[in-house]
Nucleic acid binder design. Sequence first.
DNA 1: CGTAAAGTTCAAGAAGTACTGAACTTTACG
DNA 2: CGTAAAGTTCAGTACTTCTTGAACTTTACG
Lengths: 155, 155
Amino acid sequence: MDPDVGRRYAQEVGLVLAQMGTTPAFGTLLGWLLVCDPPRQTAVQIREAVGLSKASVSTGMRALEQSGMVRRVPAEGRGHAYEIHPDAFTRAIDPTAKMRAFIDVMQRGLDLMGDEDAPQARRLRHTRDVYAYMIERIPALLDEFRAREAREEEG
Amino acid sequence: MDPDVGRRYAQEVGLVLAQMGTTPAFGTLLGWLLVCDPPRQTAVQIREAVGLSKASVSTGMRALEQSGMVRRVPAEGRGHAYEIHPDAFTRAIDPTAKMRAFIDVMQRGLDLMGDEDAPQARRLRHTRDVYAYMIERIPALLDEFRAREAREEEG
DNA sequence: CGTAAAGTTCAAGAAGTACTGAACTTTACG
DNA sequence: CGTAAAGTTCAGTACTTCTTGAACTTTACG
């Protein structure tokens, strides 16, 4: 991929991720690691590729590391390189996070009301229960996908 | 529920929703409509309850209406009242929205690469496919929940 | 049909946040 | 072991975005 195209794509990913609450820089770095060639790159390479400051690369890469999406690997010469985890998104970006937050705030409302079975609690109960059900079922879906993926790689 | 407790709870909901990209005022209004008694309230009542300006209530309620979470109902006397839809959250807050955004940006990366089967495209492909699979299966989960809910109301 | 309440719109101020330059610490080559 | 590259930290700046007061339009009661 053309380096210029890659840089712009990384920024696109940055925008998408930013709309989900990360900083643009965080998403840009992730976007670059998603498409870069070779897949392992040093901070200096990344910096030159995406055009962020040394400070932003340092802070952003640490956040990516802590979130478990990216890992450090030894590099020849000085410093170290970074590599995105193959299924970084499924590992770190929990699609049920939003639902959990809803469940929590609904439950808190029910606690404040005191009587969970009161008619006025219905609005809160319904929302809590829908999301609780979804979250309960989603892990099985992920397992199914992994099984299907494994089957395809054999066959 | 104590009016003061209700107001503070509405603000809590506002904070939770704000972390998902809405304005705090939007979430606060929604939070109030979740727990208020009576469930139908005029803009003036809402304004007094949550302590937002007339302007914020007006703008916020319109957004809630357009998102389909809240509907206007005729009020006695002047003006009109608002009422939250029983399953406002499941209707309007699509838990797959985030996944769709990821699928789109992964696909765009694959398009830029040209060759979808290239080894360097693997990182993009994997993420796209996981989320596509999840989205495909989630509607069935919602149906299951509704069926279960209907069964419980009979029994 | 006049008037006051209800509702809308928008410019301006306030508040929060992300990026970076610069100073500092750590690392490792020669 | 000196030095230069690599990496970290943080205060300041630039930017975006939410809220609101105020002026305006619409509604409906008397």
